[in-house]
Amino acid sequence: MPLLQQAVALIIIICFLFRAAVQKKKNEISATEFRLWLAFWLLAALAVIFLKRIDQMLQALGFSLSGISFLFYLGVIALFYLVFRLRLSLAKLDRQLTEIARQIALQHKK
């Protein structure tokens, strides 16, 4: 990845880090959530800075894909996982909603 692209990627990451800090300051996100985002964006920054090292590491392990492709696949897997978790938490909420609706029906018999 040329230096310019790396610089742009780092600027974007800094913007997101700044945004997370502002949200934390305004109490829009919890301390735990802030720490999670902080860790995520710092890891992303490290991956961008040491992209060549990742290339070398993958080659040493016998993979033909480049570091940036590896990060991309990793991102897709992470997204699938997040969507799955989201689906499960929605299902739990849906179940709780059903229980409330049922209780209201039982309490208001006509």
């Binding site: 909603l97 059903t98 609706a101 049922r102 209201i104 029906a105 039982l106 208001h108 018999k109 006509k110």
Partner: peptide, 16 residues
Amino acid sequence: VLRHPINRGQGAALQT
């Protein structure tokens, strides 16, 4: 008559 305040489906209605 028992009335669900929102539509929840046949399974939920049967359990109610």
